[in-house]
Design a protein around this nucleic acid. Structure first.
Length: 1029
RNA sequence: GCCCGGGUGGCGGAAUUGGUAGACGCAGCAGACUCAAAAUCUGCCGUUCGCAAGGAUGUGCUGGUUCGAUUCCAGUCCCGGGCACCA
């Protein structure tokens, strides 16, 4: 039976006119209109009630619309919002659209439709789909990141980031003007040691710098900055991508190849917040998995940077040292260096292994490569670098070959003077640490493989912990062959070595992060323009009065010249006259104030998709404010998002960026909290449940009499899943098939081989596993002539769980289900499927059960024949017991987001009340309040029918009272030796001696004791009895 | 390879602190009502032995702790997700 074309009988009678059956269509339409007209979901920014902020990750309004997987999180958050409201909270539960982004622009390129137009159409469609489900969003607070009124403030926040730097002393963002003041009074001088030209300067020098020099120096500290860097360039998309938008060397969206390219880009200096982003994780309720993902992404490690003197070319003095070693004897050479030789700085997390260093590896891009490569090795090294450059990021990831080349030079171990060959290899990354490592083969698997591959002798510093076969990264071994740290446990030696190198002035303690600064510009059209104008190579921020800097209309979405975005094609826009702000503290008057049209050019990049989503939770609080992104009083009232629901796919992107923006805004005093989300719940994916038909491809008939094999290719025959085997096995039911294929003349007993193809079929024309044959014939013209081998008169489909996707014909549209069963049924069924956080397959069939439940609930109030059956009679003890058990169950299940068991709790309650023939308002009314978060329409309707005025949402949540559920006795399980043998009804007051007596008198217990005395009787009051023989 | 999750009937899942495994729902089977269907209602429903009473067995697998283990511990296999040359 199809979901779309099945007609539900009896749902068209108008409400209240005679037929008193559950007419969900009219009820839901009526209440949705009523809620809209009365503005019942409008939330004030001031209230005596405590606040509660429930947020959904807002959707990107794609053209595909919603499938049943999308609303899962929204339903969960809606239930929780309504629950909190009933519990007396002022609940903020908004919704909006993350409307800027690549897909709309790709669509524009392909179809010539302006992104604003397609986005608006998509939003309209989304909204109508959402409205049908009956959410309690306060739509007056809707935000759309692509509207000027919104992105004005995205641009404004960008300017705050641009105008701030991260102070390492206070560990927070401060206005860049403070840094300028510092430079003017004190300059920037090192705490110890000599100033390094180009890095350090005095106040006098600062004052003498040109405007451009000052701007460049400040750019090194701005939290939003522009710089040249290696970026992920995606040619197909014509833009750079952030690290988290690149998966396995291809773009996350579209799967296009991504290459490393050096370009001028804007960045967010998120690395400055690495520590605070890490520490903040301890203060929020995210799942362990989520925290883990974020801390892996940040990738903090601590160790040391160590300088090694470098002897360019062969060691000048050599002497042999023979290490006493359990596995190998290593002949080593030492050397001295001359003044002309250099030094190489490496980063290691394991300074304790410094005596196990057998070679050094530097990245092929390392600046020292040229300098230290000897003339003999020059050719080989150049060839190797050529090879590395020829390899794409993707190849490097796919095949991890061991490659490398010796430079011809040596580094000297600072402690024992051993000469250590320096290699280059692609396994060392230029962008991490110092781009150079000290390789310790006995303790690091990669170093070990490298040493084995190139036959580099391995020094063992961990004795028996190293087996000569593979590296052992232990920290618990006792050090050997390690000079002054011999005999120490490695773990303890780490600190000893760091202190020593610091004393010697050849290194420092150092913390490193895997996380890089986030690329913040895109060479695309459909994003926020940067409020920046370039004049003589200096970036000037636009004056606030110029905001929003509106995105101009374009005729073409094609990229501009030199890897620039489409905006570069619009000279009139680039050259616009705008008011700028001087920001360097310079006295140069020409650059202050209005800079006129001059030679400047507006920035043509736009901001990435995550810009608007990094702060939207703040805009919901105060969406119409045109004086500020959000009034401070309002953000102080709403504070953190109390509950944030969304998918795991944003673990390292959106979640980290929005956390960083929140921390910046907090540091700058614009908001009062520095973590945006207090608790995060990740909804699981709803997988598709695909259905298959089995199309007969060929029949191979082995005609023994004539001694030949014939192949037949029948047309359009489909075999029911359960018949597949019996048709193939000898002696099966082949006659039926032969009849269909006009092969009756063949002897069915002869061996045949049947070849079938498994083909996806639209789940919407399958009822459970039974194919709707008529619908199937209509589905595709080629099916019109289809014939079927059935089982029990039915065609049974095959089933598999796969990702929900159009191409697999396993998507289910919520609209269809809402039409057929109603929003309340749909909402409850989505929840009933299983725990919110878990992934589970969708199966439309089960929705009937939930629908039956709501009909059964309805019948507690109204009977089809008898009409109104609810009464004002006083409830019995048994009925009150059901009610209060339900209150307790629903409250605790809702509280812990266990909505699936909550739904089951309602079913149990309605089943029990039906059994008790309870139609009493006293009980039913309270049940409705419990139910309203889950099924708001039916609850509201019946609430009204019971004679209540006002919305059920303003009712008081029922209070559980233990006295109604108190039991005086319990059916105790009685086990003998831990095996359940019987149950016995025993008073709950009964103490152990009494219970023992009762139990031992029981016939079944006596039987199992076989006259032997029990060794022991375990009695847990209120739980169980176990007799040990 | 490393780090997280998770393996329970035909299916989705329940068992909140170690205490009656399989709640609730779907599917299935049998029956009632009906001219019939729909809707609704009743009963059965892990496997297995047994006419039954009752027994055995059972939460991926192997052990352990315990009076008692889906739950705790050790090992192992499988599935899902994340990370993957980060020194």
């Amino acid at each position: 039976m199809s979901v779309t074309d099945k007609k539900e009988s009896g749902n068209n009678s108008p409400l209240g006119a005679g037929g008193m059956e559950y007419n969900f269509r009219d009820i839901e339409k009526k209440w949705q209109e009523h809620w809209r007209d009365t503005g019942i979901y409008k939330v004030p920014n001031k209230s005596d009630k405590p606040k509660y902020y429930v947020l959904d990750m807002f959707p990107y309004p794609s053209g595909a619309g919603l499938h049943v997987g999308h609303p899962l999180g929204y339903i969960a958050s809606d239930i929780y919002s309504r629950y909190k409201r009933l519990k007396g909270f002022n609940v903020l539960h908004p919704m909006g659209y993350d409307a800027f982004g690549l897909p709309a622009e790709q669509y524009a390129i392909d179809h010539g439709i302006h992104p604003a137009v397609s986005t608006e159409a998509n939003i309209k469609n989304f909204r109508s789909q959402l409205d049908k489900i009956g959410f309690c969003f306060d739509w007056d607070r809707e935000v759309n990141t692509s509207q000027p009124g919104y992105y004005k403030w995205t641009q404004w926040i960008f300017l705050q980031l641009f105008n701030s730097y991260f102070c390492h002393t206070e560990k927070k963002a401060l206005p860049i003007s403070l840094l300028v003041k510092k430079y003017e009074t004190r300059g920037a001088m090192p705490k110890t040691g000599e100033p390094i030209p180009g890095k350090h300067f005095t106040a006098e020098q600062w004052k003498a710098f040109s405007e451009k020099e000052k701007a460049d120096i400040l750019m090194r500290r701005r939290l939003a900055y522009c710089g040249y860097g290696e970026v992920n360039w995606c040619e197909a998309l014509g833009t750079v991508l952030a690290n988290d938008e690149v998966v396995n060397g291809v773009s996350e969206r579209g799967g296009y190849p991504v290459v490393k390219k050096t370009l001028r880009q804007w960045y967010l200096r998120i690395t400055e917040y690495a520590d605070r982003l890490l520490e903040g994780l301890d203060t929020v309720e995210f799942s362990e998995a989520m925290k883990e993902m974020q801390s892996n992404w940040i990738g903090k490690s601590s160790g040391a940077e160590i300088d090694f003197r470098v002897r360019i070319g062969e060691p000048v003095e050599t002497r042999k040292i023979t290490y006493q070693d359990s596995t190998t004897t290593v002949e080593s050479i030492t050397s001295t260096v001359s003044e002309n030789d250099g030094s190489l700085r490496v980063y290691t997390t394991r300074p304790d292994t410094i005596f196990g260093v057998d070679f050094m590896v530097i990245a092929p891009e390392h600046e020292l490569v040229e300098e230290i490569t000897t003339s003999e090795q020059k050719k080989a090294v150049e060839e190797y670098i050529g090879y590395v450059k020829s390899r794409s990021e993707r190849e490097r990831m796919a095949e991890k070959k061991i490659t490398g080349m010796f430079t011809g030079s040596y580094a000297l171990n600072p402690f024992d003077g051993r000469a250590i060959p320096i290699w280059i290899s692609e396994y060392v990354l230029a962008g991490y640490g110092t781009g150079a490592i000290m390789a310790v083969p006995c303790g690091d698997e990669r170093d070990h493989k490298f040493a084995q591959h190139f036959n580099i002798p391995i020094t063992n510093i961990i004795g028996k912990h190293y087996n000569g076969e593979e590296a052992n990264p232990t920290k618990d071994a006792i050090l050997e062959n390690s000079d002054f740290i011999n005999g120490m446990v490695m773990r303890d030696a780490i600190d000893v070595v760091i202190k020593k190198i610091e004393e010697m002035g050849i290194g420092i303690r150092k913390v490193n992060y895997k996380m890089r600064d986030a690329a913040f510009s895109r060479q695309r059209y459909w994003g926020e323009p940067f409020p920046i104008k370039w004049i003589n190579g200096i970036a000037y921020p636009l004056d606030e009065s110029e905001l929003p800097l509106e995105l101009p209309k374009v005729d073409s979405y094609k990229p501009g010249p030199d890897g620039e975005g489409p905006l570069a094609n619009i000279p009139s826009w680039i050259n616009r006259k705008v008011k700028l702000v001087n920001h360097t503290g310079s006295e140069v008057p020409s650059l202050g104030g209005d800079l006129g049209e001059a030679e400047g050019a507006l920035e043509t990049n736009t901001m990435p998709g995550y810009a608007g989503s990094s702060w939207y939770f703040l805009r919901y609080m105060d969406p119409d404010n045109d004086k500020a992104f959000c009034d401070r009083n309002v953000s102080d009232y709403w504070g953190q998002v109390d509950l944030y629901i969304g998918g795991t796919e944003h673990a390292v992107g959106h979640l980290l960026y929005s956390r960083m923006w929140t921390k910046c805004l907090y540091d700058l005093g614009y908001i009062g909290h520095d973590e945006p989300y207090k608790k995060l719940v990740n909804q699981g994916m709803i997988q598709g449940s695909s259905r298959f038909v089995y199309k007969l491809i060929s029949i191979k008939h082995n005609d023994i009499e004539k001694g030949k094999v014939n192949d037949y290719y029948p047309k359009s025959i489909y075999i029911s899943h359960g018949k597949l085997d019996s048709l193939i096995i000898e002696g099966g039911e082949r006659a039926e098939l032969f009849k269909l294929t006009n092969l009756e003349s063949l002897n069915a007993e002869k061996f045949v081989d049947i070849n079938v193809a498994q083909v996806h079929v639209d789940v919407n024309i399958v009822d459970g596993v039974e194919l709707d044959i008529e619908a199937f014939k209509k589905w595709r013209t080629e099916n019109l002539e289809a014939q079927f081998v059935l089982e029990n008169g039915k065609y049974i489909c095959g089933v598999e769980t796969e990702k929900m996707s159009k191409s697999k014909f396993n998507t289910v549209n919520p609209d269809d289900l809402v039409l057929k069963y109603g929003a309340d049924t749909f909402r409850m069924y989505e929840m009933f499927l299983g725990p919110v956080e878990m992934s589970k397959p969708w199966d439309t069939k089960g929705i009937e059960g939930v629908h039956r439940f709501l009909k059964k609930l309805w019948r507690l109030f109204y009977d089809e024949l008898k009409g109104k059956v609810w009464t004002e009679e006083k409830a019995t003890d048994a009925e009150l017991k059901v009610l209060h058990n339900t209150i307790k169950k629903i409250e605790s299940d809702t509280e812990r987001f266990s909505f699936n068991t909550g739904v089951s709790g309602f079913m149990i309650a309605v089943n029990e009340l039906t059994d008790l023939k309870c139609h009493k308002k006293e009980v039913l009314e309270k049940l409705l309040i419990l139910l309203t978060p889950y099924a708001p329409h039916i609850s509201e309707e019946l609430w009204k029918q019971l004679g209540n005025s006002g919305s059920i949402l303003d009712a008081n949540y029922p209070v559980f009272e233990a006295k109604y559920v108190a039991e005086s006795s319990k059916e105790y399980p009685v086990s003998i030796n831990g095996k359940l043998r019987t149950t016995m009804n025993i008073s709950l007051d009964a103490a152990q001696p009494e219970v023992e007596k009762i139990v031992l008198e029981n016939d079944i217990v006596k039987k199992w004791l076989e006259g032997k005395p029990p060794k022991k009787i375990i009695f847990v009051k209120g739980k169980m009895v176990n007799v040990v023989v």
